[in-house]
Design a protein around this nucleic acid. Structure first.
Length: 600
RNA sequence: GGGGGCGUAGCUCAACUGGUUAGAGUACCGGACUGUCGAUCCGGUGGUUGCGGGUUCGAAUCCCGUCGCCCUCGCCA
């Protein structure tokens, strides 16, 4: 062991170590220099320990040179802090290390932003005045020194460990599948990789290991999982990165209930062992159609109510032309009751061109009707179009009380859902209906998704989940006659408004698979050329099977209660899918392109 | 591709309605200081107000263009 190597971490020394000679390695979190002594807070990922260098210490002169983020080795004796000078903000705050020997292992220029500043809780020096995100991404190696990010990455490690432990104990095999695969035109845009040895041909990076895991089922690996990187060349969001990590699970000889049980137990273990939260199972199972009506979303945040209420029948009894026109065209009028919000919004904000109207316009709604409840009555610029009896019925249906704000959208089913669904979340935010200081988690399974959605642009049916999802047995006969009515054996796991996972029971019968391809407008020849290997495999004795994939980055967000996926990934990409640290994606040499047979 | 927000010192921000030499905290540099722990005190360096153009006696501020970042719609089987 070299003489500078640590004997302890910066988080472990206590009064039980008093008198011991120790060596610490770490970064300078902060320093306080006096004429005759220097205090150094030395930081590593285990904590912070105060080091004192005094005038009679041999390296006192050197200590004067020390600045933030220098890497040091300190050899010294653990001693108690003097009476009344203990620091309760640090878990090591009862002791300090009196330096005997000190060396600078590496210097650091004045950092572009402060890694640390203010102590907020024991051991963790929290950040205030956090630097701009692009700067932090550019110097990610500095940003990653922050305790918050170090804790988050440690939590991801623990999450992966729990997953492996739980699944291993139940006989699952962790198997790897290729990164270089075949492009399939269905689904998200592929990241493509050119083949050098076959000029003009391309691999695709996996959007998920979907087909491989099904082939593993055919091959008899009846309990499979993989913590797999997936890549999709689509636009980014606060909860979407171009490469992300899924827990991919597949089982043979199972039905939906078996997977629900497995995943519920896994979720219990993850929440218990990662953040110490006990959760209740089984999770509620909600039908797709029902959640769309009640929450306007297939991934509702169930931490608050404010459910959407259909008032189409009442709207018919009004003389309000906007409502009547919509209803006449087969549309719907639905509303939410923002409890107590009447005085939070001025009529200016509510009227056409106002903030709230603009908000719903962003989701396709042509307008926003509203009533405030005052003195037991509805008031609005449109109240005259609503007979007293109808107003009373509206109040009753929406359980309206004084001070409430009722918000209505009239449009097609899809538009009402997305506009009111978004408005519900927005109002929930404004009214602070979610207490982020509480560790509150609401889980649910969403089931009975339609197998197909209509692609109006292309005038064809598209797979809602993916084309290998089994339809419900009782809906199979509708496959050709009424595809829109076919429900799938598909399910999403939702947590606090996030789609935390999704899966399905797969088709294991080649004839059914062929029928499904043909609903999607794929001829037998096309199906054979794209997915021939899967159809073949299904013919060769495929077991009934199904699985699920969990978005582990989102799980990390949920567990750490952050809203930005970049905060739970070590080296994330920005919204333009660029890595600000490495500069990827970058141009490449003409020579590289030439080898690949690619023309500029 | 559309909508919204932001861009001022190394960093975090301020600068009223267009009006004096663009300020503060912090970091950095120098000095003082024996118990600090967001040390304190004194002094100092530091600015293409993202970039380009325009309006004006005068622009950080208004207008046009452009670049970058964030949120979002479309997209994400």
């Amino acid at each position: 062991m070299a003489d500078w190597q640590r004997t302890h971490t910066c988080g472990e020394l206590r009064e039980s170590h008093l008198g011991q000679t120790v060596v610490l390695n770490g970064w300078v979190n902060s320093y306080r220099a006096y004429n005759d002594q220097v205090f150094l807070d030395l930081r590593d990922r285990y904590g912070v320990t105060q080091v004192v260098v005094e005038a009679d210490d041999p390296d006192f002169a050197l200590a004067q040179e020390i600045r933030d983020e220098f890497v040091l080795t300190v050899s010294g004796v653990v001693r108690s802090r003097i009476e009344g000078k203990h620091n309760p903000k640090l878990t090591t705050g009862d002791i300090e290390v009196k330096a005997k020997k000190l060396a600078i292992l590496n210097r650091c220029p004045n950092p572009p932003f402060a890694v640390m500043s203010i102590p907020q809780e024991p051991e963790v020096f929290g950040e205030t005045e956090l630097a701009g995100e692009d700067l932090r991404l550019q110097y990610r190696f500095l940003d990653l020194r922050r305790p918050t990010l170090q804790k988050t990455l440690a939590l991801r490690h623990r999450m992966n460990k729990v997953i492996r432990d739980v699944l291993d104990a139940q006989g699952f095999l962790e198997l790897e599948t290729p990164l270089l695969g075949r492009s399939s035109p269905e689904g998200a845009r592929d990241y493509l990789v050119p083949s050098r040895v076959t000029p003009g041909a391309w691999y695709a990076l996996p959007q998920s290991p979907q087909l491989y895991k099904q082939l593993l089922m055919v091959a008899g690996y009846d309990k499979y999982f993989q913590i797999a990187r997936c890549l999709r060349d689509e636009d980014l969001r606060a909860d979407r990165q171009p490469e992300f990590t899924q827990l991919d699970v597949e089982m043979s000889f199972v039905e939906m209930d078996d997977l629900f049980r497995l995943l519920e137990n896994l979720t219990v273990e993850v929440f218990r062992r990662c953040i110490g939260v006990e959760i209740q199972t089984p999770f509620p199972r909600l039908q797709y159609e029902d959640v769309m009506l009640r929450y306007g979303s297939d991934k509702p945040d169930l931490r608050f109510g404010m459910e959407i209420v259909d008032v189409t029948e009442l709207a018919k009894q009004s003389t309000f032309k906007v409502f009547l026109d919509v209803v006449g065209k087969g549309g719907f009028v639905r509303a939410i009751n923002a409890k107590g919000a009447a005085d939070k919004f001025s009529n200016t904000e509510l009227k056409p061109g106002g903030k709230l109207t603009e908000f719903v316009a962003g989701f396709g709604a042509k307008g926003l009707a509203w009533f405030k409840v005052e003195g037991g009555k509805l008031t609005s610029s449109i109240e005259k179009f609503f007979p007293v009896g109808v107003q009373e019925q509206l109040q009753k249906t929406l359980q309206a009380e004084n001070g409430d704000l009722l918000l209505f959208v009239a449009d097609t089913h899809d538009t009402v859902c997305s506009a009111l669904g978004a408005l519900r979340l927005h109002m929930g935010n404004v009214l602070k209906l979610i207490d982020m200081t509480k560790k509150e988690f609401k889980f649910a399974w969403v089931i009975d998704f339609p197998s197909f959605i209509r692609d109006e642009e292309e005038k064809r049916w598209a797979a809602n989940h993916h084309p290998f999802t089994a339809p419900r047995d009782e809906d199979l006969h509708l496959l050709e006659s009424d595809p829109g009515k076919v429900r799938a054996k598909a399910y999403d796991l939702i947590i606090n408004g996030y789609e935390a996972g999704g899966g399905s029971i797969r088709i294991h019968n080649p004839e059914v698979q062929q029928r499904l391809f043909s609903v999607l407008g794929m001829s037998p020849e096309q199906a054979k050329s794209r997915f021939g290997f899967l159809l073949d495999a299904l013919k060769f004795g495929a077991p009934p099977h199904g699985g699920i994939a969990l978005g582990l980055d989102r799980w990390a967000m949920i567990l750490t209660q952050t809203t930005n996926i970049r905060d739970v990934i070590a080296f994330p990409k920005n919204q333009k899918a660029r890595d600000l640290m490495t500069g990827a994606p970058s141009e490449v040499d003409a020579k590289q392109l030439k080898e690949l047979g690619i023309k500029q």
